[in-house]
Design a protein around this nucleic acid. Structure first.
Length: 263
DNA sequence: CTCCATGTTTAGAA
DNA sequence: CTTCTAAACATGGA
């Protein structure tokens, strides 16, 4: 479940399980995940080296390897990490597995194979090369408002645009707009200072809350839209049936009664 | 069988 | 140039 909160949870999981253990072997079950590096070259980079620290920018997770270089992980739509102990048949079926020399492994499991694994010398340079905006959790209100300057589109695609800010996807943009009570098609250039402030507060609150509950859908506060965004779902505030609108072919869930600002 | 899915990239239309 | 759409990628669950 890979938007910013899920990636942050994965980052902490990797830190708690997989640091400081030399890599004994690398198994790539789906080479299509590799981004600009061969399985052999990746194995050579990691062999005998432990992961020493992590970094996250938006939906990208990085792990620095002892003696330099960073493993880059992106989880696409269905990717997640799994730490386990060999022998384990689950490891053999994973899209990528890093076996440590203590009999443990860290697997990147991604049934849909839309994720990516790469190697970068410097995460900051990769962020620049890909023109990613600032991480959504490292913004203050002033910078957030600056990102809105000169923008004319709809607020939902704006929140999801990784070149504006990095980390927000389809599910959390719905939640943020619900908490801010803004319509997803509100025009960014028509948002008042108050709207922008509410949107910023909602963004911070939603992302931090999601990380606190480890992005577990069952554990979100009862006031959250997220567990209700499905067919037949009703607004947790006013019980109105939720609507699904489409933006570029992607479903956006909203409460037509609560989300009337702005337009 | 059909519909739908948390992401990114690309091509093309306004 | 910006904004927006649709398709493609590959697979599984309801």
């Amino acid at each position: 479940m890979p938007e910013l909160p899920e990636v942050e949870v994965s980052k902490r999981y990797l830190e708690e399980t997989s640091l400081h253990q030399p890599v004994a072997r690398v198994h790539i079950g789906a080479t299509s995940l590799l981004d600009g590096i061969s399985p052999q070259a990746l194995a050579r980079r990691l062999h005998h080296r432990p992961l020493e620290r992590t970094h996250r920018h938006g939906k990208y997770l990085f792990a620095e390897v002892d003696h330099g270089g960073w493993l880059m992980l992106h989880f696409g739509m269905t990717g997640h990490l799994r730490y386990g102990r060999t022998p384990d048949p689950a490891a053999a079926n994973a899209e990528a597995v890093f076996f440590f020399d203590n009999g443990r492994y860290l697997a990147h499991v991604d049934p849909r194979k839309l994720g990516h694994i790469g190697w970068v010398d410097d995460p900051r340079r990769m962020v620049r090369d890909r023109a990613l905006g600032p991480d959504a959790l490292r913004l203050d209100l002033d910078r957030f408002c600056c990102l809105a300057q000169g923008r004319h589109g709809q607020v939902k695609p704006w929140l999801m645009n990784q070149e504006v800010m990095a980390g927000i996807g389809n599910v959390y943009s719905d939640e943020i707009l619900f908490q801010a009570r803004l319509r997803p098609d509100a025009r960014v250039d028509r948002l008042s200072d108050r709207d922008l402030s509410d949107l910023f507060e909602a963004m911070q609150g939603v992302l931090e809350t999601a990380i606190d509950v480890e992005a577990n859908p069952c554990a979100f506060p009862g006031t959250y839209l997220l567990p209700h965004r499905r067919r037949g779902g009703r607004c947790p505030r006013c019980d109105t049936p939720l609507q699904r609108w489409f933006f570029s072919g992607r479903g956006a869930w909203l409460c037509p009664r609560c989300q009337r600002r702005t337009r």
